[in-house]
Design a binder for these strands. Sequence first.
DNA 1: TGTCTCATTTTTTTT
DNA 2: AAATGAGACA
Length: 760
Amino acid sequence: MQFIDELNESQRAAVSYNDGPLLVIAGAGSGKTRVLTYKIAYLLTQGIPAGHILALTFTNKAAREMKQRITRLVGEDVARYLWMGTFHSICARILRAEAEHVGFTKDFTIYDAADQKSLVKKIVKDLQLDDKIYKSGMVLARISSAKANFIDAEAYARNEAYAKIDRLERLYKMASVYAEYNRRLRAANAMDFDDLLMYTVLLLNNNPEVRARYQQRFWHVLVDEYQDTNHTQYLIVKLLAEPQNHVCVVGDDAQSIYSFRGATIENILTFQNGYTGAKLFKLERNYRSTQNIVNAANSLIHKNKGQIYKQVYSEKEVGERLHLTGYSTDREESSSVARQILGLHRLNKRDYEQIAILYRTNAQSRNLEEEMRKLGIPYRIYGGMSFYQRKEIKDAIAYFRLAANGSDDEALERIVNVPKRGIGATTMARVHEAALREGVPMLRVMQSPEVYAAEIAAATQRKLQAFAEKISLFAEQMQQLDAFEFAQLVLNQSGVMADAAMDTTAEGVDRKGNLEELLSGIRQYVEDRKQQGEETSITDFVHEVSLLTDQDENPDDSVSRITMMTVHSAKGLEFPVVFIVGLEENLFPSPFCQSEQEMEEERRLLYVAITRAEQECYLTYASQRWKNGQVNFSNPSRFLKDIDRQYIQQLSAPSAEPSPWRMSAVSNQQSAISYQPSVISNQPTVATRNLKATTGLKPKAEQQTIVSNWNKGDRIDHKVFGKGTVVRVYRENENDKIEIEFDEKGTKTLLLAYAKLQRI
DNA sequence: TGTCTCATTTTTTTT
DNA sequence: AAATGAGACA
């Protein structure tokens, strides 16, 4: 037990307390993960077998890292038997083993967001509801919220609180949509993310002998980031830990930022009610950040009303104050941040790896990305499109999914015509209708269309059968081949690979490259699993992949890069230098929070952001920002006033109102009409859109034309603008002027135009 | 059936 | 700015 010396007093107390449930309130940077890691190591040295310890984390990455740290303490041959993972992956593991108890087979598919959305759309259509009211996003949010609170479709129908909101939104049939949604998932032998949690609770609730088995398996249950658990997760922990209640949860109410996903801070606040005799430990010493950073963050968070009182403190150096800078535009903000990063790298010898830029919304990464590229700063963006979300990858995986689970209608619809097989929407609508009517999977209908859907033309029926046969052939092969061999076979015989290979455009080459990357990923997977002596089938691979997120992608190369991500995904991370950008009203805080509670959550979000910084923290805002293709004027975030001024150094405020670029469009020498003051920055940039209203251009000609970042003499791509159209962009009170003339070619594709930058 | 054009919408965060 | 959806047309 030499490692217990590496802990401070309160950490050690939490680690070695073992007489019952405990709640560890761990301030930011106070060694939360350290406590959890050491606690597990401690349990292991106390003779608890690794296979009897369950540790639940928030992300796969956190689980992986914790496992690595424990491995370093106790060795691989012990650590590998730990049950460690996200709620979702552990639940999936349990559910696959016990699938028949909840009426699924162990090969059930996990539907991702796209599958869910498409399913909801179909249901809304089939139930003949108005899709303007039953928007898929809204419907899914309602369902997800219900599932997070362990409310099934039946209970939903009886639930007055939900009904009230639904009435407000005119979603009178919401309960039936929910019920139908679940029926369809079940028919497809599929679960969504929330089902993984929901069905685990059902499983344990309804099957005493299964429950007893898992309760006997898990002697100790530990939960990280407890402030971000929802009610269903609370139930899972409760059910698994009974009756001994050897539960250890670690969290920080000040960092609760996922209530939009159903997380409830109540879980922390009432922990001691749910587990009588629970002991509370507080970790208040921050080992991460300088005093200025910790104090600034404290002054901010103390403006919140609801919180467990704690005084986080740092004994590191006082450090620099937070640097606050205002800019007139978002472009300026981005380019200045880029220049500062370059400076930090060159002059202060900062490794790029030590620097992160955090923002409220993913959309903000675009500008930043551009500026980084301009200055040659290597970067890594988390969020946005991950590898597994690319079209060709999803297509490939849909083939695997369908082979593994013939009821997976979403996978089927995705690939039935990829590559083109002449099976169009009309045919699929008939297949869908028949499948619904007969209560069979669509694949079955396609196997014998003459039985189920006779109205389909004979020639088309043969196409359907050919497809169905191909899939059953794959399903057969799947039994004999390992994941890599199988994937290779499918990509070749499905035509997906050939399709990509035929396309010689840049995107086509990319697609082919991605597919090859997928293959080599699968090969790697097979090799790894072989070494571990584990299964190497494609189904395991698919199951694993469906629980991955972009956070989990390989840190790839050895190049040192700055990191750009949303504040949410930065939770749990730390960087010597942090830039927090876009600190404006209607962005951060988000324009969507109505209630005071939501505002407090946004404040916690900024608290999380600031406390990521170890040494330097830069805060920026801009007074003009592009949003949804429009310029927005904004004020500095109210949160800036919440931070005690003594910890902030204001470097500069936006200079006087910039003279914006104005744009006018002239059609055939018609009169010029000035357009909204839009464009910004010293780089002449033009954005035109929907000019019809203002210019009277012919209806054909005027859709969205975007030209950005010009230099003298640049050639630019854009859409057809209409014969003889001239667009002028000029800067008020100055003589800079850009004039573009559009010629009339351009039938379908983009027209190349020539931009002339001139001074008049 | 497939492609192209035009119009409308977008509420933020993620396992 | 980008994505989605509807409708026209080959």
